[in-house]
Design a protein around this nucleic acid. Sequence first.
DNA 1: AGTAGGACCTGGTGGC
DNA 2: TGCCACCAGGTCCTAC
Length: 306
Amino acid sequence: MSTVSVSQSGQPVFSDALHYTVVMPELPEVETTVAELRERLVGRIIERVTVSWERSVGHPSLDEFIPRLSGLAVRAATRRAKYIILELDGGQRLVVHLRMTGHLLLDDATTEQPRFVRAVFTLDDGRELRFADQRKFGRLYLVTPDEFAAGLPFPPLGPEPLDDAFTHAAFVAVLGARRGVLKPLLLDQSFVAGLGNIYADEALHHAGLHPQRLAQSLSAAEVANLHRAIRLVLARGVASKGTTFSTYRTTWGLEGLNQHNLQVFRRSDEPCYTCGTPVRRVKLAGRSTHYCPTCQSEPPVAQPEK
DNA sequence: AGTAGGACCTGGTGGC
DNA sequence: TGCCACCAGGTCCTAC
């Protein structure tokens, strides 16, 4: 449950407030958000919609987006990859991708709007679902049942790593078709859905694999280790309600705890918990990449360079 | 098919 | 103190 902030200086009391200070939402952060929305939003009716940053709406046009949503009840909240899916009356779906800095906040309408609000969905119970997004990368999509059945608004997505169907054999199958450097491959949503920079680095460390290893160079044992590691770090992230790097604290804000589980991410130059070697940070495929040079030994085959 | 780089964005940080 | 270049990273797009 969220905590309640009681102000004695005339500030509103944030009862039933739901705040997220999660940065960089990946699968566990989105899963946590969806679980909260399932509990607190399903059954409510969207009465009114306002959009203050037009490009936050990815589909359809704003002229269609707003009137089509009005009066619809939220029937279910689910997740696919890093997408939040709100099923509405008539089978329409409001799909949300938080990208880098998106937040969904559920607050009493009388409370002050948080910074960077891009869209507000006024509910029938006096609350508002607020989409805040500092860097404006996040997107909202409204799709019809036919569009959703045709795969909109999703790009090609790989298997869900926490599904029971994502067995070792299933991982071998998707990996066998791919080549290239491990780190960018793990970030490729069409390979396995839901990993981002944090959990990709953590999975590689847990599996003892150097981020520059080539996918096709892995032994059977290393493939099994990587499969186990992906599932483990994501499951641990979900259990910890996500990873929070917040620059500010609020008395009513919910916060994930997985940052305390991280072995290498954002631990540059700090000692590896396993062997004490300073964690190294390099730029790989345009992303900062963290690894332990001892636990994750260098690729056995020399990379073509120089 | 893969790789690289730019674009989208803005607040925070560090250098001068 | 003030300015400014740079960085953060999810995804799409283009080019090679």
